[in-house]
Amino acid sequence: MPEVETTADVVANDPIMTDAALRPAFFEWLCRLGDNTLILGHRTSEWCGHGPVLEEDIALANTALDLIGHTQMWLGLAGELEGEGRDADTLAYLRDVMKFRNILLVELPKGDMAVTMMREFLFDAYHHLLLTWLSSNSSSPRVAEIAAKALKEVSYHLDRASDIVVRLGDGTAESHRRMQDALELLWPYTGEMFKADEVDERLSDAGVAPDLAHLRGAWESNARDILEEATLTMPDPAGYAHLGGKQGRHTEHLGFILAEMQFLQRAYPGASW
């Protein structure tokens, strides 16, 4: 009979997870990963049944499904690490706005398909670099394991989003204009992905996470290549950046996402679904 691994064993097998001094920052950092995928998954799922063509409807639902799957893993690990009995659902459904740690980019309204696909591209390009680093370099085996699973799907997300950005950027005059507008709308929200704070620095020092400033160069060069192929003009990378999501200071949009997402859990506390 295989031995049953308890939660305590799992944490014990990952020495990084037993480091009590690192734990609060590690928890915050895992919530950032899980909240990014949760909120972007939510926004992406809003398209269900409303896509511009059947194949896109399917692809968007599939992407949302992947992101919700990643959320279950990241927030599940966060709850396990915290050790206070909160699981992925408790974290997703019973925290309020100021406890959410996603970047602002992912909570902006879905807009038209130009905004949706441009956001996916800008985020996926970062997400892909991050997961690639985590899966092969993280000092936490649990983190590396989740990153490796998620990376397979995110590689596909990035391929698809890049392809659509190129096609719509270099499509008709209207599709070009919409993509350029979307790029300019979203660009000021990309800086937050690479702006490290104390949490990021502590995780990076512990070898769990990469130095974000390091990822930035590769991200910009990938974005530049794709945007150039799409005949779009890349805004100034040194331009103004909206910050705050990672620390819990959000846009007005997140409250409405949570009001909708958390409705049943809030209205019927303790029920099992």
């Binding site: 049944g49 063509v53 038209d112 398909m113 659509i164 096609r167 499509g171 008709t172 209207e174």
Partner: peptide
């Protein structure tokens, strides 16, 4: 609405 709002998207892909 989904079909009409998606027209520019489909046209863009076809043009490309």
């Amino acid at each position: 609405k989904a079909w009409e709002d998606g027209e520019w998207f489909r046209d863009g892909l076809n043009a490309y």
